[in-house]
């Protein structure tokens, strides 16, 4: 007998151990997210996928589906709160879309489009963050890092390398790399590592590939993020 739960009033089947996010994705239902990727261990840090589970809020990516529960996701209130989270991410870093190679293929931007963000709303932090261009093939642009730890997980679990971690704490948390020099060039990162491909923003970029696709033909110019499909949001190179 298939187990189901209710997602926005619709019956969604799930297997034992599946999270709400996984079951929703399998059923073709999009729940906004940034730190989630179906290939990697759920993390639950961006909190964008927060849903209402029988009247209690929780992250869809880390909460297991339970038979019979009523989950609300596409509500005006949840989307308003998700919008606030995205606005927080925008003011926390230095996200200047017109100058970013990732623009049009960026999940932070695409989620913000979907949630209707017209302004970052809060006061900008304008933090001073290091750009690491030392690596021959990969740029690490910390100004655009949202600390989703997808590269941390991908490097550890898919590439078997442990190139990345989050160092520091609180608002000073930052992406650090596995080298005494602190330079990406001194790690064993390779251009075709999954860690580089899964970055949802322009924090990790392959060099010499920027602006290759003209405006109007980029991933999220063609379709909104909820139509792209799970795991495909990081674009063609993924």
């Amino acid at each position: 007998m298939t187990q189901t739960f209710l997602l926005d009033g619709r019956e969604v089947p799930f297997r034992d151990g599946q999270t709400i996010m996984e079951a929703a994705a399998a059923a073709g239902v999009y729940i906004p997210h940034l730190c989630h990727h179906p290939e990697f261990k759920p993390h639950g840090s961006c909190k964008l996928c927060t849903v209402d589970i029988d009247g209690r809020r929780g992250a869809a990516c880390t909460n297991r589906a339970v038979a019979g529960v009523r989950v609300q996701s596409e509500t005006a209130e949840l989307n308003a709160d998700r919008l606030t989270l995205v606005q927080m991410l925008f003011v926390e870093g230095n996200h200047i879309c017109p100058s970013c190679e990732k623009s049009g293929n960026c999940q932070l931007q695409a989620v913000a489009y979907r949630l209707g963000m017209t302004t970052p709303h809060f006061s900008h932090f304008y933090p001073l963050r290091d750009v690491d261009a030392s690596h021959p093939d990969v740029l690490l642009e910390r100004n655009r890092c949202i600390l989703c730890e997808l590269c941390v997980r991908a490097s550890r679990d898919a590439d078997g390398k442990n190139v990345f971690a989050v160092g520091g704490r609180g608002i000073r948390a930052r992406l650090i790399v596995n080298a005494a020099s602190g330079r990406l060039a001194d790690t064993d990162l390779a251009a075709d590592d999954r860690a580089v491909q899964v970055c949802p923003t322009g924090a990790l970029l392959r060099k010499r590939q920027g602006f290759a696709v003209p405006i109007g033909r980029r991933l999220f110019d063609l379709q909104p993020i909820d139509a792209v499909g799970p795991g495909q949001e990081s674009g063609g190179e993924g």
Partner: peptide, 12 residues
């Protein structure tokens, strides 16, 4: 600093 709401919200 793990989650967005607390990391950014407490500073704001």
């Amino acid at each position: 600093g793990f989650c967005t709401p607390c990391r950014v919200g407490t500073s704001l």
